[in-house]
Computed example of a mutant assay.
Amino acid sequence: MLRRLALTAVVSLAVLSAAAPGAAAASGPLPLPSPLPLPLPLPLPQGEGEDDARARLTVTVSKAGDPSAEGVFELECAPVGGDHPAAEPACDRLAELADEGTDPFAPVPRGAMCTQQFGGPATARITGTWQGRHIDAVFSRADGCEISRWNNLRPVLPGVR
Results as ranks from 00 to 15, higher is better:
A86R: 14
S27I: 04
P85W: 00
G71F: 06
H84I: 12
A53H: 12
L40C: 05
A55E: 11
A64T: 00
A19G: 02
L32F: 07
S68N: 10
S68Y: 03
V72T: 15
A98Y: 00
P29T: 09
P39K: 09
C77N: 13
P21I: 03
A55C: 13
L7P: 01
S27E: 11
L42C: 06
L5G: 06
L97W: 00
L13C: 03
D92M: 10
V80A: 08
A53S: 14
L75A: 12
A53W: 06
S62W: 08
A78I: 07
L42K: 08
G47E: 09
C91P: 07
D51R: 15
V10A: 13
A98H: 01
T60N: 08
P79Q: 02
E48T: 15
V59Y: 07
V10M: 14
P35N: 03
A69H: 15
F73L: 14
G65L: 00
L97A: 01
E70I: 01
P35A: 04
A9H: 13
D66V: 10
R56K: 08
L32M: 10
V15C: 07
P33W: 03
P35K: 03
P31D: 04
R93A: 07
E88C: 11
A26P: 02
G22S: 10
E96W: 10
C77P: 13
S27T: 07
E48L: 14
H84T: 02
F73K: 14
L75M: 12
A55V: 06
S34V: 12
L13T: 05
L32D: 09
S27Y: 10
A55Y: 10
L32T: 09
L94I: 09
D92I: 11
L30P: 00
D51Y: 09
D83N: 15
A14R: 15
P67I: 02
L94M: 05
L75W: 10
L75T: 13
P45K: 11
E50Y: 12
D83S: 06
A69Q: 13
S68M: 06
A24P: 00
P45M: 05
S27C: 09
G65Q: 00
G22L: 11
D66P: 03
D51E: 15
E74D: 15
A20D: 04
T8I: 03
K63M: 01
P89W: 06
L38I: 12
P31S: 04
P67E: 00
S17I: 00
A69F: 10
V61W: 04
P79E: 03
L36D: 05
E48Y: 14
S62Y: 00
A19M: 11
S12F: 11
R56I: 08
P85G: 04
L32R: 14
V15E: 12
L44F: 02
Q46K: 14
C77Y: 13
A69V: 04
G22F: 04
L57T: 01
R93Y: 05
G81W: 05
G28Y: 05
A14S: 14
E50C: 10
T60D: 15
S17D: 12
A6Q: 15
D52G: 05
S62H: 08
G49T: 10
V61T: 05
A98Q: 02
V61D: 05
G49S: 13
A20L: 02
A55K: 08
S27Q: 11
R93L: 02
A24R: 03
P89Y: 06
S12C: 13
P31C: 02
A69S: 15
A69L: 10
R4G: 11
L38W: 09
A90K: 01
L44H: 02
V72K: 15
